[in-house]
Computed example of a mutant assay.
Amino acid sequence: MLTRAAITEVVERGLAEDAPWGDITSEHLIPAAATARAVLAAREAGVFSGGAVFAATFAALEPAVAVELHVADGEPFEAGAVLATVTGPARAVLTGERVALNLTQRMCGIATLTARYVAAVEEAVARVEEAAGLPSGTITRTRVADTRKTTPGLRALEKHAVVSGGGHNHRHSLSDAVMAKDNHLAVLTADGTDLTTALRQLRRRLPHTVHLEVEVDRLDQIEAVLAGGADTVMLDNFSVEDLVSGVAVVDGRATVEASGGVGLETIGEIAATGVDVISVGALTHSARNLDLGLDIVLETPQG
């Protein structure tokens, strides 16, 4: 969840980094009374995210700066579209330009990439329905989820951008849910601890509201994990054939998540195996910033 506090923290840190002792160019070159009007323009098509962050950057510098957003988070746009208009004291507009752009370009890039993954899943599921002669919407769409492979300090923004692109959030932090991964299981194995027993003991200690997910990398681990009470079984780096087998073994007794090595070229066939969730680290660790620009609009002299 992208809270006001999270936005403020990131924006203030960004501004302190970019202008630690002020913007000496704007402060010495631009008259204090000068005003400016600028437009946030898209130089390529994409999906918007980060409107609140963009506006908060200028507000942190000068409350008199007004930001009018012309698109909402989650809306697609074409190249050349005007996404927002910024008006107010020129010094503040110029000082906030880079930080506002850096954050918004990052978020739009993630939202745009996520939308491509979501579209690939929808297309794959539609093909399965058509091949089976089923009405559209018969098969529940596989969720595309992010991971914790985010930029340190920017997780709240990046996960919000995933949602803007039509994806879903996995856990936000290590404190949100229990997720026993391969290294956790390796420690238990080295210690001689039975996996099912360990999971059952863990389940008894957990509040009933806490979700339990366990990662497996072999089909023969699934039954032990289910017997331990897992709510979600993550099939990590499984082949497509083994994903089909894994879904059959679980047989509705838990949520099935696929993870590992997921790309735009493979996510469709992974979704077609029947898994409930596909977690994709690339949504955040491999997204490129979208090309946006903040351009000063020169007013035409009257008369």
Rank of each mutant, 00 (worst) to 15 (best):
R116H: 14
R98Y: 06
A111P: 06
V99Y: 01
L101Y: 08
A131P: 12
A132H: 11
T104V: 05
V93E: 05
Q105S: 13
A120F: 09
A100K: 06
L101D: 10
R127H: 14
L134D: 08
N102R: 03
T114L: 01
V125A: 00
V121D: 02
T112K: 02
N102G: 09
G109Y: 03
G133L: 05
E130L: 14
S136L: 09
G96R: 00
S136I: 08
E130F: 09
E123C: 14
L134I: 11
A120I: 00
Y117F: 15
L103A: 06
Q105P: 14
T95N: 02
V99W: 05
V128F: 10
A124R: 10
R116F: 00
A132R: 13
P135Q: 04
T95P: 04
T104P: 10
C108E: 04
T112A: 03
R98N: 08
L94G: 02
L134K: 00
L94I: 15
A115R: 05
E123Y: 12
Y117H: 15
L101N: 11
V128W: 01
A92D: 11
G133H: 02
M107Q: 09
I110L: 07
V118D: 07
A92T: 03
V118C: 12
V128A: 03
R127N: 14
Y117P: 04
R106T: 11
G96H: 05
G96A: 10
T114A: 10
V128M: 04
A131K: 14
Q105A: 08
A132C: 13
G133M: 04
G137P: 09
A131I: 10
A92S: 15
A111N: 05
R106H: 11
L103P: 02
E130Y: 12
P135C: 06
A111W: 06
S136G: 14
E123I: 13
A100W: 10
L134E: 01
A120K: 09
C108L: 12
L101A: 12
A115K: 05
T95I: 06
L103M: 11
V118Y: 03
A115C: 12
R106E: 11
A131Y: 10
P135M: 03
I139N: 01
A124Y: 05
E97H: 06
E122S: 15
N102Q: 13
V121S: 02
S136R: 15
R116N: 12
Y117R: 01
A124I: 13
R98F: 13
V125Y: 00
A92K: 00
V118M: 11
M107K: 07
A119L: 08
E130A: 15
V128N: 08
T104S: 11
A126Q: 12
C108N: 10
T95Q: 04
E123H: 15
A131G: 12
V121G: 04
V125I: 15
E122L: 13
L113N: 06
R127E: 15
S136P: 12
V93W: 01
I110A: 07
R116Q: 15
G109S: 10
M107Y: 05
E129P: 13
V99S: 03
E130R: 15
V121A: 02
A115P: 07
A111R: 06
V121Y: 01
V99M: 06
I110Q: 02
T138F: 01
P135I: 02
A119V: 02
E97P: 04
L134Q: 08
E97S: 12
